[in-house]
Amino acid sequence: MSPVGRAILLVFVGGTLGSMARLTVSLLLYQHYLGAGNHYTVAMAATLAVNVIGSFALGALAALRQHKRISTVLWLLLGVGGLGAFTTFSAMALDTFIAIQLAHWSLAGLYVVATIAGSVSAAALSYVWTLYLTRSPRVSA
């Protein structure tokens, strides 16, 4: 198989696993927290949870990749495919749109800010920590 075909296949397999993992997280949250009248906020919480967790994990993977601690195979499988599919931007837009349609303006604003600030700071934290933990040891002269 050509290198490009192999890369696409790795992303496909990772994406399949990532989507199933996201579905699992959603179903677990629904099972434990779904009650009368909170359907909508539980669905939002599930999207928020996968986005923040996935961004945290990808920040660490990106730092490992930058220092060549993980192979391209693992990066394509877990990073581009797995965590790329585990997290979602379109569902966040849909959740926000539904909140706007229901005229829940503060919920919509809070949700977007929490998702973006949460995901970016989670990725920043894990990226910086991983760079720090995997730094080359200083050789004392």
């Binding site: 994406g15 990532g18 989507s19 996201r22 986005n51 996935g54 961004s55 994990a57 990808l58 920040g59 581009v80 965590l83 790329g84 599919a85 585990f86 997290t87 979602t88 931007f89 379109s90 569902a91 966040m92 998702t115 995901s119 970016v120 989670a122 990725a123």
Partner: peptide, 10 residues
Amino acid sequence: GGYTTMSTFA
């Protein structure tokens, strides 16, 4: 969900 991504964006 597989196509769009928040983690790569972050």
